[in-house]
Amino acid sequence: MEAERLARAALTRVVEPGDERAGAWLRRVGAVELLRVLRTEDGAAERLPGMTAVRLEGYRLRAAATDPARDLAAVAALGGRLVCPGDREWPTQLDDLGDARPVALWVRGRPDLRLWALRSVAVVGARACTPYGAHMAATLGAGLAERGWVVVSGAAFGVDGAAHRGVLAVGGATAAVLACGVDVPYPRGHAELIGRVARQGLVVAELPPGGHPTRARFVLRNRVIAALTRGTVVVEAEYRSGSLVTARQAQRLGRFVMGVPGPATSGLSAGVHELLRGEGVLVTEASEVAELIGEIGDLAPDRRGPVLPRDRLDPIAARVLDALPYDGLTRIRELARGAGASADETLGRLYELHSLGFVEREGDGWRLTRSSPRDRAVRRGGS
């Protein structure tokens, strides 16, 4: 088992994240044998289908420079560890990635990655987000954390950082999945934030200590975020966005995909709106996310407008009120005809409406009071 762990630690320096060809070889021959073949070139053509001389040379250059014991010691000095498939802490939902599954994961932080992943949701979005996007991400992060959910994101500027900060502000659980080593604070401007996440939650990476980010590694990192969580919420995203890559990967894996709508005129919300026209579900707050991805009983509160005084009237009283003209006096017989009620019923309802402040009497006639609730509703454009 120790040989397997050392081999997988070494392979995280040799194999690029998401390399499905290497993943197939790993599944075929195992980590120890794959590393041996890549180091010695012995039996590469026979044992590793699709291996070419050029590709093998690239792997061999990397394999020759590996020192897995040093990497394991480096991450241990940070209070971290290497989590491998088959370990008790390995989140088995990552196996849904097939041959694109991570070789292993480098982890900083004390919580159990597998247990946290069981009740986790990703909140992702634009780096150059608007104040609205930052507010929604932070609010969602805090609300989900208060409901016992682990919020996973990528520690990038914009929506990612706002989601992490929202969770940290309420003392909740959050995990950052990086496109570099767990000891590399990237972006540099988020060094303090990543440190806080490592102390309060988890920092996770496929790359070994010292690994640097590249454009391709950012894109491939998103598949881990999608697979690790039960659902992905996109707050703001343009048509071409890494956040939409995460959402589409989540869709392919059968995870829930959600989007927070923005202004129809905002280019930063255009990608989210396109997502919502397809398989995405519109959400506006944490309770709606929890209702979609949670267990039975995680229900969002019913949405309804304010209750107006008129809403409490019985049907006949409402018809009598509607029969009163906006201006002027009306007699009982005319009101009864307009309301479709008898004169006695109409008179009884008028006294009820009078006690509620809707109408007033003048001689034998009745009219709306100048401050009638119906009058105010009409002025606001209501009914």
Rank of each mutant, 00 (worst) to 15 (best):
P49Y: 15
V15S: 02
L105F: 06
C180E: 01
G280S: 09
V378A: 14
G18K: 14
F157A: 10
A339Q: 05
A73E: 13
V233H: 06
E146C: 05
L6W: 08
L321T: 10
R88H: 13
V121N: 10
E291C: 05
T284F: 03
G231C: 07
A117R: 14
E192P: 00
P208V: 05
G143P: 05
E46F: 14
D42I: 14
G254H: 12
V272C: 04
V233L: 00
V233T: 05
R370V: 07
R230E: 08
V235Y: 03
V121P: 10
E16V: 13
S269V: 07
A270K: 14
R5W: 01
A31R: 07
R81T: 06
V37Y: 14
L308C: 03
P187T: 04
M136I: 12
H212I: 09
F358T: 09
R376N: 03
A191K: 04
V289Y: 05
A24F: 02
T40M: 12
A247V: 13
R349L: 00
S342V: 00
P301M: 10
G18Q: 13
R374F: 06
L368W: 08
V283L: 02
R199M: 09
V203M: 12
R277G: 04
E41P: 10
L324H: 07
A286E: 07
H354I: 01
A339M: 00
D298C: 13
V121K: 08
R370Q: 11
E360K: 11
A117Q: 14
L115C: 12
E2M: 12
G141I: 08
D302R: 14
